[in-house]
Measured scan of single mutants.
Amino acid sequence: HNLTITQGKLFFHYNPKLCLSEIHKMEEVSGTKGRQERNDIALKTNGDQASCENELLKFSYIRTSFDKILLRWEPYWPPDFRDLLGFMLFYKEAPYQNVTEFDGQDACGSNSWTVVDIDPPLRSNDPKSQNHPGWLMRGLKPWTQYAIFVKTLVTFSDERRTYGAKSDIIYVQTDATNPSVPLDPISVSNSSSQIILKWKPPSDPNGNITHYLVFWERQAEDSELFELDYCLKGLKLPSRTWSPPFESEDSQKHNQSEYEDSAGECCSCPKTDSQILKELEESSFRKTFEDYLHNVVFVPRKTSSGTGAEDPRPSRKRRSLGDVGNVTVAVPTVAAFPNTSSTSVPTSPEEHRPFEKVVNKESLVISGLRHFTGYRIELQACNQDTPEERCSVAAYVSARTMPEAKADDIVGPVTHEIFENNVVHLMWQEPKEPNGLIVLYEVSYRRYGDEELHLCVSRKHFALERGCRLRGLSPGNYSVRIRATSLAGNGSWTEPTYFYVTDYLDVPSNIA
């Protein structure tokens, strides 16, 4: 807008934040220059609390790290170098490059900038070799853009010569660093050979998330399962459950009422301010606690030095998902009996873990797994792929695949051998790939016309006998059925096997 004052003059007093240069501009645009008398524009009460600059400061050096910015700028000295009290560095987070010096300023003089007072450097006698002032900004957020400017702080001049310097606002972004852990990993099994893994992005990506790394490792069953005799009275049979499938998407929606109208769909109840505040506090606490764990609990591995020492970490090797089922080394339970199943799973520490690289999504279907087997899954978020990966501390989750139908069934015939004193040795093959492992066998036998009897055969007993022995049988026709019990439950009964026990007292003698 054009402003013209045809008559009258300007009068400025007691404006401590208004620089004289701005008042002189007002004289020019209003056409009143030359009308004012000496005392109409006070030299001592206008701009006496402001830094009124008329020179431009330029930054000469900028260096960044993930949490620091090192700045240096060209030296500046007023005509009387004693008038320079120091520099004021202003900075704040700036997602967009549209910041002005006066953003967030209120009537009390406060604003949204963080201000650092910096002492002037030592003055050199040689004007050509003056030290460049600077400042190291610490405690910054990774991968965050900051708006920065600097200006001088000078003393009051009796001659009211307006001098000083100020830089333009520059924008500097800190470097990326390792992201925080992925949030809320959930693993479920939808079949006997697959596990579905879902997660949420890290709360602090500290860069642009480029991919996720998912490692999985087959877990050995508890050692007590191999040692305890679950045929003993009072000892509860062990059981394991597989990871249940995901709930429906509708039930997972946030901010939804727990109660549904019987007449149909209901609208979600909005969260109160107290609920939102509580969630923010919980989120802040979780982030602080995660940072504490990362800094205190997890110790970084030592990389190899120039002395030739090897990095103890196993090298990563990509495998196809079809090879995942046989990740671990199978060892027989008892070496003397080769027909026992290889369900003991000690994992070799030198073995390469299978892994998958996930790009542009937060889910993965891990296939080719062994049925009813526990897996430990390790999830890392990465925001750099080359020249070397920059990934987060791992988040861990466990899951067990679903049982395989008929995996616990005894394959092959049940054979028998009759000894003296009416002892019958029953023999059968253990299931080759049971659900988890076989903890015991149930032997059901009966003599024709009598009630059915049951015998429990422990895992250890089966390994020693290759089956079991029935003792003290009365003469007669017998039928026997056997079924295995694994961590997933009972298998199917075998087809009945028949044998006849004679009275050993009636056996004919070869003595003449």
Rank of each mutant, 00 (worst) to 15 (best):
Y498T: 03
L437Y: 14
G322L: 13
H416V: 10
F355K: 14
V480S: 02
S257T: 06
R319S: 11
R301W: 08
D385S: 02
R318D: 14
R316A: 14
R459Y: 08
Q275I: 11
A394N: 08
S398H: 13
S479V: 10
G325T: 12
E465L: 12
P244H: 12
K236C: 07
N477F: 09
L426M: 14
D506Y: 07
E265K: 09
D204V: 14
L487T: 08
R390V: 06
Q380N: 13
V329L: 09
T343H: 11
Y445L: 14
L379D: 00
P300Y: 03
Y212S: 05
Y441S: 01
S344H: 12
K236Q: 08
R286M: 11
L426A: 00
S239E: 08
A399T: 08
I438P: 02
R218Q: 14
C468K: 08
T502S: 08
L277S: 02
E249M: 04
G472P: 08
E281N: 07
G306K: 11
R218Y: 08
S304M: 15
V358K: 12
F285M: 15
T386N: 10
E404H: 12
S341I: 05
H454V: 05
E430V: 11
S262Q: 05
K236T: 05
A395E: 12
W216V: 12
V439R: 10
P338E: 08
G322M: 15
H371N: 03
E224R: 14
P354N: 06
T272A: 07
T303F: 08
N295D: 11
A395T: 05
T494F: 01
N421Q: 07
V443W: 00
P403T: 08
V359L: 09
A336H: 15
H461V: 09
R483Q: 06
E290W: 04
Q252A: 10
P387D: 08
P387M: 12
L437G: 05
Q384T: 09
T386M: 02
Y498W: 05
A395R: 04
A463T: 13
L277D: 05
S315K: 13
A220K: 06
R313D: 02
Y259S: 13
L464N: 11
E465I: 07
V480K: 00
K302L: 10
T485A: 09
P508I: 05
G368F: 08
S348L: 12
S248E: 05
Q256S: 06
E260R: 13
E260W: 12
S492L: 11
M402P: 09
E495Q: 07
G306N: 07
S243D: 08
L228H: 01
I366T: 01
V334C: 05
S304Y: 05
P431A: 05
E442L: 10
G325L: 04
E281R: 10
Y498E: 07
T288N: 11
D408T: 01
L228E: 15
V414K: 02
I482Y: 01
C468Q: 06
R466M: 09
R400E: 09
E221S: 14
T333P: 03
E258M: 03
G476Y: 00
E389D: 10
F499H: 01
F298P: 06
L440H: 12
R376W: 12
F226E: 13
V359N: 08
D323T: 14
T373Q: 15
T288S: 06
P431T: 06
N255M: 13
T333A: 15
L505W: 04
E279L: 14
A395C: 10
P244T: 08
D291C: 07
L235F: 07
L437I: 04
S342V: 13
W493S: 09
N326V: 05
G374F: 13
R370M: 13
L225M: 10
E265F: 08
E442F: 11
L321I: 10
S486G: 08
C231V: 03
W216H: 04
T401M: 01
Y396G: 12
P413M: 09
T343Q: 07
S283H: 14
V501N: 07
S320L: 12
I377N: 01
P244D: 11
E465K: 04
S458G: 05
S363F: 04
E290C: 04
T347S: 12
F337E: 09
G436D: 14
V359G: 06
P332W: 04
L455K: 04
N326F: 08
